[in-house]
Write a protein that binds this DNA or RNA. Structure first.
Lengths: 220, 220
DNA sequence: GTCTATAGTCGGATAGAC
DNA sequence: GTCTATCCGACTATAGAC
């Protein structure tokens, strides 16, 4: 069913993909070695050239895999935002609710879910050090998400300049991303052992409260 | 004067340090090669073992160099914060002014200055993927800065729980850091060519406005 | 102090047996 | 499809001439 119709082995390809997400994420493309990945996946090194054409092909497959998953995850919310119209005070309240929904999903994904943490390592690497694969990520979901957030901010705060709205959208994203990027600093600074569900809840509350404070109307 | 008293060559050591900041920053410790660094510094590869004991020694020297510079840069402001007392409404206003000052310096450093951009590549790498050198950075300035910001937030907003204050401090840092981490995404999303002085000024304004909105008293 | 030459290790990819 | 063996290039570090 899920197979592509050819006679591939049961799991080799998928094992490699999953292992590659972790190894590429932790070490980056250059330092990650095909030997590490093959070992982590419990398959033979020669399976990488065989299934993916080589190290680069495997990396691109990882990017496609991640982008697909995130598009599926975020798709519904993005469509909801794209399809909505924000007029009057009800529109404003709707926009604020949607901003809240986006940020909560984002923090849950990036700091709360195991898969989100694995994916975000690779995405953050591409943010700071774009490879040719960056384009797939940017077009796949970064740009749609950034656009959606900018629209919501304009609707919620009355901001009319799209560039200003984008800058504001970035600050909202930044409040979330920092808990992934500086995870170690937070954990050491507060002497934690990772984020507990309670701490995640506190973080979520702070982020939402900030977002609401930031998107007040200038007149309020 | 500044020399350590021995008879070293005029610039070889310094050239290596400067080049290493860029190469380690762009490629990470593992993927950076001593060949790249030596070539960028225009010195012989053998100078690296000679001056720094090897690749690892050079990396540690880079970390020390960066931490020293930033401590010098941030020291005055940190002392001012540590030495101040924040009582009553004047204290609150002072705290808000100081938060503003910290954020403005931070965004100028991280997105505005050439040196800050070079330094921050390495620091952000250590944030996401700590090496043994992380400790130097954490104790050197991350912890002091995070503490200072937390104190200011408690003074400015009336927040009394230190953990909550730390989370809030992180969100403020996140708003700044995102303009470095996601620089490429912002630039592509808005079709810019890097941040112009005008755009930096807009970003600075957004960050400060958000910080002020966030640190309102709950009663306000 | 600076260089060349080279030792020794580890990387990705391939050939060919099964 | 999966494996072993192997090629070849690139890496760090060192020895020793100058």
């Amino acid at each position: 069913m899920a197979k592509k119709g050819n006679t591939h082995a049961p799991g080799t390809r998928e094992h490699l993909l999953e292992a590659a997400i972790d190894v590429f994420g932790r070490h980056g493309f250059d330092s990650a070695t095909t030997r590490m990945i093959a070992k982590a996946a419990n398959v033979n090194i020669a399976a990488i050239p065989y299934y993916f054409g080589g190290k680069s092909g495997l990396y691109q497959a990882v990017i496609d895999y991640i982008v697909d998953h995130i598009k599926k995850e975020a798709g519904e919310l993005l469509e909801q935002i794209g399809g909505a119209t924000f007029t009057g005070d009800t529109g404003r309240q709707l926009a604020r609710k949607l901003i809240q929904a986006v940020l909560e999903r984002f923090i849950n994904f990036i700091a709360g879910s195991e898969q989100g943490q694995r994916f975000s390592r690779i995405i953050l690497r591409e943010q700071m050090f774009p490879s040719p694969a960056y384009d797939t990520i940017f077009k796949g979901f970064l740009k749609p998400v950034l656009n959606a957030l900018s629209i919501l901010i304009m609707a919620a705060s009355g901001e009319s300049d799209p560039r200003q709205a984008t800058f504001r959208a970035m600050t909202l994203m930044g409040q979330v991303v920092i808990f992934r990027v500086a995870r170690e600093t937070i954990v050491r600074g507060l002497d934690l052992e990772g984020y507990s569900p309670e701490e995640l809840e506190e973080i979520r509350r702070v982020i939402v409260a900030n977002a609401l404070a930031i998107t007040e109307m200038p007149s309020e």
